[in-house]
Amino acid sequence: MTKIFIDPGHGGRDPGAVANGLQEKALVLDIALRMRNMLLNEYEGVQVRMSRDKDVFVSLEERARMANSWGADYFVSVHINAGGGTGFESFVHTSQASRTVALRNVVHDEIIRALSGVRDRGKKVANFAVLRLTRMPAILTENLFVDHVQDASRLKDPNFLSRIARGHAEGIAKAFGLRKKQQQQQSSTSQSTSTATSGNVMYRVVTGSFRDRENAERRVAELKKAGFESFIDVYRP
């Protein structure tokens, strides 16, 4: 079982970077929750914990302690940048342990692939507390700039936040060799279905076809709430 610890930066009294009507703490929590759901819903053999799943303050030391106590296999700290730049960058600790670097290279490249058209600011090192205090391989990602007009416009789009989460989730899955659940295969085109059985025969009822995965996930949630076993299937026309 692979244990992934997701750390949405800031929270509570610490808003993080603020600009263009955006707060870092809210954006990274949104992204982290999407990541968690993607990993748990779509992959086998993975457990996920988070440093926070709501708007609360958690100290840097506590974030690392939680991951260490749980025995996490990977620590992923999600942030949004500020300071006049644009694009995506990732960090590992200055010690640069070989496995940490290897995992980061995979995750970074998958995120860049998911965010096509976004500037790749590079793979960097830093002595950030959450990277220094964690005992497992750790990465910190900076996902665009709230104070850059074009970046901020993208960050206001829920579909773009899903793309950020998707890049992280697929990067983690690739880095750790996670297997897709049988009923889950990624595609830009998804179908939401519910199923009923009679004897040895299974009847599948398609309840919608969607170009946007988020819409498909919303339909599945609606069906499950109504008491129907539902999942996302993939059709490639």
Rank of each mutant, 00 (worst) to 15 (best):
T2Q: 09
I4T: 02
R13Q: 13
A17S: 11
V18H: 07
A19R: 09
A19G: 11
L22W: 05
E24R: 03
A26T: 15
V28F: 04
R34H: 03
M35L: 09
R36T: 00
L40G: 04
V48R: 10
R52N: 04
D53G: 11
S59Y: 12
L60W: 10
A72M: 14
Y74I: 11
H79C: 01
N81E: 05
N81K: 02
G83T: 05
G83A: 09
G85Q: 04
G87V: 10
E89R: 00
E89M: 01
V92G: 05
S98Y: 09
A102V: 03
A102C: 01
V106W: 06
V106I: 15
H108Y: 04
D109Q: 11
E110G: 01
R113T: 11
L115C: 06
S116L: 05
R119S: 12
R121T: 03
G122K: 04
K123G: 03
K124H: 11
R135D: 08
R135K: 15
R135W: 01
P137M: 08
L140D: 03
E142Y: 14
D147H: 07
A152W: 09
S153Y: 00
R154V: 03
K156C: 06
P158L: 08
L161Q: 14
S162I: 06
R163C: 02
R166V: 00
I172P: 05
A173S: 02
A173W: 01
G177Q: 14
L178M: 13
Q184E: 10
Q184A: 13
S190H: 15
Q191L: 15
A196D: 12
T197C: 13
G199I: 07
G199V: 09
M202P: 00
G208L: 14
F210Y: 15
R211L: 14
D212N: 13
A216N: 10
A216S: 14
A221E: 13
F228W: 12
D233P: 02
Y235N: 15
R236P: 01
P237T: 04
